[in-house]
Amino acid sequence: MSKSREIVIITEDAYGGEFFKRLLSRLRTEGLTDTRLKKLSGRKNPIHAPYLCNSKLGKILRASELVRPDFILLVYDGDGPSNYESKKKDVEKHIPRNLKIPVKILLFEYEIEEWVCKSLGYSWSTKPSDELKRRERYTKSKLPEYADKLDFEKLKRNCKSFREFLRILGD
Rank of each mutant, 00 (worst) to 15 (best):
T126D: 15
L120D: 03
Y146I: 02
K142S: 04
S129M: 07
L150H: 00
F152G: 00
K118P: 01
F152E: 07
T139P: 06
A147L: 08
Y122Q: 03
G121Q: 04
E136K: 11
S119F: 01
T139H: 10
D151L: 08
W124K: 06
F152H: 10
K118R: 14
K133P: 08
A147Y: 09
Y122S: 01
W115S: 05
S119I: 00
Y146P: 09
D148I: 08
K140N: 13
K140T: 10
Y138G: 10
K142M: 15
K142G: 07
W115K: 08
D130Y: 11
S125P: 06
Y138N: 06
K133L: 09
F152R: 06
R135D: 01
R134P: 01
L143M: 12
V116G: 01
E131W: 04
T139L: 15
L143V: 11
D130E: 15
D148E: 12
Y122H: 02
S123E: 15
S125R: 09
V116P: 03
E145F: 11
E153Q: 08
K149I: 06
E136N: 12
Y146E: 02
D151P: 05
L150I: 09
D130P: 08
K133D: 00
S123Q: 15
T126G: 07
A147Q: 09
R134A: 08
W124E: 04
K140R: 15
W124G: 14
E136G: 02
L143D: 13
S125G: 13
L132A: 08
L132N: 02
G121E: 03
G121L: 01
T126L: 09
S141C: 10
S123H: 15
K149Q: 06
D130M: 12
E153D: 14
L150Q: 00
D148Q: 09
L120N: 01
K142C: 05
G121F: 01
L143A: 13
S141W: 09
K149G: 09
P144M: 12
A147N: 02
W124D: 12
K142W: 13
S125F: 12
E136P: 02
E131D: 08
L132G: 06
D130A: 13
C117E: 01
A147T: 13
C117L: 12
K127T: 11
F152W: 05
L143C: 15
D151G: 03
K142T: 04
L150C: 08
W115T: 01
S129R: 10
R137W: 08
K140Q: 13
Y122C: 03
R134I: 03
Y122V: 00
Y122A: 05
E136R: 04
E131R: 14
